[in-house]
């Protein structure tokens, strides 16, 4: 059922049985089997599909955030810091990046991501939680506010 112009679609709001069914068939056009063409089956399938679509809008967001966490976990594990420690270290350092931005950096900007893990690791070291880190090489090059305060006091 192809609509070549918007005119017929506008008319399909009327009380006419044909146009009412046509509105449903337009939504069921890609279904498999008789639920594509038999109205009584199509209307049930369309209702179910719309319920799935409503639920799917929320599930899609959850799936994406799960994927971002998986990716950040993988990328931070490569630099010897686990996900929770990494996020906490960034927040303590006032680097407020969300999961989407971090996972994008992990995929497309691995060097920037490594710099972020180094900052987080430096913060974790300054907080005296070095046992949570796997390798602590080259962290002396990084200076943050905590390090400066430590230098002043010592």
């Amino acid at each position: 059922m192809v609509f070549t112009s918007a005119v017929s679609f506008v008319r399909s709001k009327g009380p006419d049985e044909f146009w009412k069914k046509r509105r449903i068939f337009k939504l069921s056009a890609h279904f498999i089997g008789r639920s594509r063409n038999c109205y009584s089956l199509a209307i049930r399938a369309v209702h179910r599909a719309l319920v799935y679509a409503t639920k799917g809008r929320k599930l899609r967001k959850l799936d994406m955030s799960d994927l971002w966490v998986t990716r950040i976990t993988a990328a931070s594990a490569q630099h010897g810091i686990d996900y929770g420690t990494f996020r906490n270290g960034l927040i303590q350092s006032n680097i407020l990046l969300d999961r989407k931005a971090l996972s994008d950096l992990a995929v497309w900007e691995p060097y920037s991501f490594k710099a972020l893990t180094d900052v987080a690791k430096r913060k974790v070291l300054d907080d005296g939680l070095s046992s949570t880190l796997k390798n602590e090489s080259n962290l002396d090059e990084i200076i943050n506010r905590g390090t400066l305060n430590n230098c002043k006091s010592s």
Partner: peptide
Amino acid sequence: LYKPIYHP
């Protein structure tokens, strides 16, 4: 799962 490009 250990790669940052992971996708199911």
